[in-house]
Amino acid sequence: MRITRQRPGTRQGPAENFTGTVWLDEIAAPGPPSRLHLFNVHFAPGAHTAWHRHPHGQVLHVMEGEGRVQREGGPVEPIRAGDTVWIEPGERHWHGAGPHTFMTHLAVVEAAEDGTTVAWEAHVDPRDLPA
């Protein structure tokens, strides 16, 4: 067993991967042989990820606020505190806060054998977002 009492500081989500203000807190990345990565992600109103995929899928658990998530070809789905979303391996998607609310979620991913956890793609077209 290992107890971690200090983690890396909060960092801002890079503009090439996020629209709006997003803050990332790494909660767990225990290292080999584990490939688990756990983040607490804080989205300001209207902030969201770019389109992306995860090699082994992703679990999102909404801790507070309201947001939205969309998989390629599907509708934009509302998500609220207490909701858990399973995103399939390789499924192209985006997620973030609602237009008028903050949203915080836990994001759980498993790294691929080469260590990658995400493949970032284009930003979401603002014309495709509901008001």
Rank of each mutant, 00 (worst) to 15 (best):
E72Q: 11
F39C: 06
G74H: 13
V69T: 08
A50T: 05
W86K: 07
H100C: 02
R53I: 12
R71F: 14
E77A: 04
R68P: 14
T116W: 08
A112E: 00
E113Q: 12
R80Q: 10
E91S: 15
H61R: 15
A81H: 09
W120A: 09
G82L: 02
V62T: 07
P78V: 13
G73L: 04
H123N: 00
V41K: 01
L106E: 00
F102R: 04
T84R: 03
G57R: 02
H123I: 03
H93C: 14
V118A: 00
G98T: 00
W51K: 03
H56G: 02
P75F: 05
N40F: 10
T101R: 10
E110T: 13
G67D: 07
G98N: 06
P75C: 05
P75K: 07
H93E: 02
P75S: 15
I79Q: 01
A47E: 00
V76A: 07
H56S: 03
E88R: 14
I79K: 01
W51S: 00
F43L: 09
G65R: 01
T49H: 06
H52M: 06
V85G: 12
A107Q: 07
G46S: 04
T104H: 05
H48Q: 08
E113N: 05
V69M: 10
V124F: 05
W51V: 06
E113V: 13
A119H: 14
D83S: 14
N40Q: 15
W94T: 08
V69P: 13
P55G: 02
G96K: 01
H61Y: 14
A111D: 02
H93A: 08
V41A: 06
A50V: 05
P99H: 10
L36A: 00
H48M: 03
V62H: 13
D114K: 04
E121P: 11
A47C: 03
G115F: 05
E113H: 09
V124W: 02
V76N: 03
N40W: 13
H105C: 13
W51N: 09
L106A: 11
T84F: 09
H56I: 00
M103D: 01
H42E: 12
L106N: 01
H123V: 03
